[in-house]
Amino acid sequence: MSSTSHSALPQALASEGLPAHVEVRPLRHPGPTNTEPKAVRIAIITLALAFLALCIALPVVSVFYEAFKRGWLAYVTALAEPDALSAIRLTLLVAAISVIANVTFGLIAAWAIAKFEFPGRSLLITLIDLPFSVSPVVAGLVYVLLFGSQGLFAAYLQAWDIKIIFALPGIVLATLFVTFPFVARELIPLMQEQGTAEEEAAVSLGASGLSTFFRVTLPNVKWALLYGVLLCNARAMGEFGAVSVVSGHVRGLTNTMPLHIEILYNEYQFVASFAVASLLALLALVTLVAKTLLEARLAEDAS
């Protein structure tokens, strides 16, 4: 393991209000004066593992346990069922749209916020954060208030015969709302930390704004961007509350994976329900693989 692991990423992510960061550097080996007695170390590790086991690992294990209770065949059958496939397709579509929209917005917002000083900047950041703390129930409700047939825009929507809620656009909007901060908040602190020197140099050498962005800024933030995408994607696929309000629950049409899970559960099809749920839990493993790849790449870059 190379010790020159000073990439910009972890540095820049420091102390910002992000829900999640990638820890990319290899473990630092502390000196003898720099660590605790062995007994304390073991106690802390045990405590940490016990807590994680009880609060996170066990629920996940129980999901897989329930999913495979009747064996592989039941598991695969549950996933191959047409309504399940249609839910998976819809979820993938919604997640793809959300990720693309959030990446575009995240990069634009991060550019404006991180590369320039202007008044009201921290208010703007707070507004971007806001969806983190809005109850999913409320996040769905607001779109009903806007686009429902009793809503503010009802007259226009009816005149044009445009359907937003209880159709794909409503599901996408609700998902966009809840995933709104993920990419932007991952990028902003990093781009702030990196400063503007490289961009200024590029511009003064005659590069255009766009080519500065693509040749200088983007390569510097690519890993943070990727991690933001992973988180945004996970949240987009897993969103339940907000989407449940605007979906209409029409089988094979507007049911996403989390809604399909609920339906199966309510039909006492526990194995099928947990089988679909386990697919979403597997997403975390995708994150694991991606992180491992990131670390490998960074180590390569450093050497």
Partner: peptide, 19 residues
């Protein structure tokens, strides 16, 4: 262990509740 910390983000809240 590091990776499973992200699981609460990915798991639908209803599944977490049921589990």
């Amino acid at each position: 262990v590091d990776a499973i910390i992200d699981i609460p983000f990915a798991l639908p809240t209803a599944v977490a509740g049921i589990a």
